[in-house]
């Protein structure tokens, strides 16, 4: 049964990799147990009343109906409510002052992610979140258009992202691995394709990665990638996308500065490889219907390969 409930391990609260998710999984199991107990008693009494022949003693009947049908369920539900409520203060308590803070903004249908690295300093990325293991992390959440909901099932609970407001979520991953986050509030056509990858890694690896993210991109190597960079700018991609260290500074779409190092593309809908990237650029709306990015069907094969070579080098 657990196997059926867990399904994909990277996206299941019942296979927790964080303190919050572990508490939610415990709560789920207790609620399941309490619910099954109430169901068994209520249905058992109903079956007993039908199956056992003859009249039933009024006093015993009254005791069983009131006790099993009202008092017992009330006591079980009250206990479960207390158990669940007792979890809330710790889940809501802000993390220690020096904890990592990440700003995440929901945009139809992708995620803008910014790490706070110092006073007024931020490093922006998109559609992928990397976290250090065994460290509390605070997410500051908002939305740029409609209501979204930020949820990494394996790490903790979900919190709505509301335009014009900032909501908070504390997570505390305790297992290294790759997990999947999703938008948990219907937000339009491509809602089901609005996901992101979460990589929980050792502290040293995380710090090294974050230092790498702070660097601007270096010059492309090879003729294809060099031609790809020129095409990227000539075709106007920089109007929507930022690549730090170049003239591309658009903010309509995801920051592509270190795009080549990401696991997936299109908000975690396809693995980030050359074939998928080629298809994404030329037949965008076939891959993700409703996406704001126009399809670049006019590019010939060489041009497409050049741009793909350039983007894949953005490590």
């Amino acid at each position: 049964m657990s196997f059926l409930l867990i399904g994909d391990h990277s996206q299941s609260t019942l296979d927790p990799a964080g303190h919050g998710a572990a508490q939610i999984a415990d709560l789920f199991h207790w609620m399941l147990g309490g619910g099954v107990l109430i169901w068994l008693i209520v249905v058992g009494l109903a079956v007993y009343s039908v199956v056992v022949p003859g009249g039933h003693r009024p006093r015993l009947t009254k005791t069983l109906v009131i006790g099993g049908g009202a008092v017992f369920p009330t006591l079980v539900l009250t206990s479960l409510l207390c158990y669940a409520l007792a979890m809330l203060p710790e889940l809501h308590r802000p993390p220690p002052q020096a904890s990592l803070t990440i700003d995440v903004s929901g945009v139809r249908w992708w995620w803008r992610v910014a790490y706070r690295t110092g006073e007024n300093q931020r490093v922006e990325t998109a559609n992928e979140i990397r976290l250090p293991v065994d460290q509390p992390v605070e997410f500051k959440l908002t939305s740029e258009d409609v209501i979204h909901s930020f949820w990494i099932p394996a790490l903790g609970g979900k919190v709505d992202m509301i335009p014009g407001r900032e909501t908070r979520l504390k997570l505390h991953p305790n297992r290294v691995g790759t997990f999947r986050g999703v938008c948990a509030e219907y937000c339009g056509t491509a809602h089901a394709q609005m996901a992101f990858d979460v990589l929980v890694m050792p502290q040293a690896d995380f710090e090294q990665w974050l230092r790498g993210q702070q660097r601007d991109v270096s010059e492309p190597s090879g003729p294809a990638a060099t031609a790809g960079r020129a095409l990227f700018h000539r075709k106007g991609c920089g109007a929507c996308h930022t690549i730090r260290g170049t003239d591309a500074g658009g903010r309509v779409g995801p920051d592509l500065t270190h795009f080549g190092s990401r696991l997936s593309l299109g908000a975690a809908i396809k693995p980030n490889d050359a074939d998928n990237l080629r298809r994404w650029i030329s037949r965008t709306h076939d891959v993700k219907p409703g996406v704001q990015m126009p399809a670049f069907e006019m590019l010939n094969r060489d041009e497409l390969d050049s741009i793909v070579a350039y983007l894949e080098q953005l490590n």
């Binding site: 009250t78 409510l81 207390c82 409520l85 809330l88 203060p89 809501h92």
Partner: peptide, 9 residues
């Protein structure tokens, strides 16, 4: 009332 008893902030 239980909600307010447990949620202190």
């Amino acid at each position: 009332a239980l909600v307010f008893y447990f949620v202190e902030t």
